[in-house]
Amino acid sequence: MAPTTLVLWDIDLTLVEMPGLGRQWYERAFIKAVGREMLHYPSTAGRTERAISMELLAAHGVDGSDAMLTGLFEALIATVAEDKSIAERGRALPGVKAALTALSTLPSVVQSLVTGNLPVIAGYKLAPFGLDVYLDMEIGGYGAMSAHRHDLVFDAMRNAAAKHGAPFAPTSVVVIGDTVHDVEAALHHGAIAIGVATGHTREADLRAAGAHATFPDLSDTAAVLAAVLPAGTAHVPRT
């Protein structure tokens, strides 16, 4: 059975949280790539690695060329690879593993990512909690390719269509995230937006941004599946 629903997950404060690690990684990577200390740390919520890095470089008067961005990305990847504290300092958020597991049993569903993270770092963040195994990470939309989050949704939709041999209708694409940026990126393409208030954005604000459904967290698996799957979809697990 070919999948008919594409579910695209955000990572940070949607699937996992790891307080303080992002800033520490950037501080170390900036020294490696630029050769001096980081004095300004941009807002990161819902933003892409390219947008964050471009602002970071500009704030320090550093040329934001592709070569410099690539150098900073490489330093960031190396920094995260060296960090052995992710499993200890981070955690999967409530209900995440149950929701991923339930959706993974349905042949009508394929799950991937729309995340501001770089692909390799996405793997480093998810693997310690056993979450990567539920996701086709090859077709995700990642933060190096654009400063605009809606471009990442388009990239994931295009990648999924190429792999599965047919486009996914926008109304069969579901984006799940914790920020208004996630909601707006989904709506830009006519996709379904689900907001989860496990980050710094209230449910009311996610609804006001246009989310089709919102949750305080993902602990109610049945309700999450009902929001993700089109009405009338048979919940038939793989055998």
Rank of each mutant, 00 (worst) to 15 (best):
S112R: 01
Y142L: 04
G140M: 01
L100H: 03
L152D: 00
P107A: 14
V133Y: 07
G140E: 01
G130A: 12
G116Y: 00
V96I: 09
S108N: 10
G90F: 05
P119I: 04
E88S: 10
V114S: 03
D155G: 09
S108W: 04
G165N: 09
P128E: 08
G116T: 04
H150I: 06
Y124F: 15
L100G: 04
F168K: 01
A156M: 01
Q111V: 08
Y142N: 03
G123H: 09
A102N: 10
D155E: 15
A122D: 01
E88V: 10
T115R: 00
E138K: 12
M137R: 14
V133S: 13
K163C: 09
G140L: 02
A169H: 12
A162E: 14
H164M: 06
I121Q: 05
A166H: 15
G130Y: 11
A160E: 04
F129Q: 06
G116V: 06
L126P: 01
G95N: 13
R158E: 10
H164A: 07
L113Y: 03
L100R: 02
F168A: 03
S104L: 11
Y124D: 11
L106K: 06
A122R: 02
F154D: 11
G143E: 00
L103Q: 03
V110G: 01
G90K: 02
L152Q: 00
V133G: 08
V114E: 00
A169Q: 12
Y142G: 03
M157F: 04
K97Y: 12
T105I: 07
M157L: 06
A99Y: 03
A161F: 04
H150L: 07
H164W: 14
M137S: 14
L135E: 01
A92C: 07
D132Q: 10
L100A: 04
L126T: 04
A166M: 14
T105G: 09
G143W: 00
H164F: 15
V110N: 00
F154T: 11
P107L: 12
N117C: 11
M157S: 03
R158H: 12
L135W: 02
V153Q: 00
V133I: 14
D136R: 09
S104A: 15
A122Q: 03
A156H: 00
V110D: 01
A169S: 14
L135C: 08
L118C: 10
Y142E: 05
Y142P: 07
A122K: 00
Y142M: 05
A160C: 11
H148F: 07
N117K: 10
L93I: 12
A99T: 15
L106W: 01
L103N: 03
V96P: 05
L93T: 05
S146P: 09
M157R: 08
Y142F: 15
L131M: 13
E88C: 06
V153N: 00
S104D: 15
A127C: 11
A102W: 09
A127R: 15
R158W: 09
V114L: 06
T105A: 13
L131I: 14
A144S: 15
F154C: 10
Y134S: 06
T115P: 06
Y134H: 13
L93Y: 04
P167D: 09
G90V: 05
D132G: 09
V153M: 00
R91Q: 13
T101A: 15
Y142D: 04
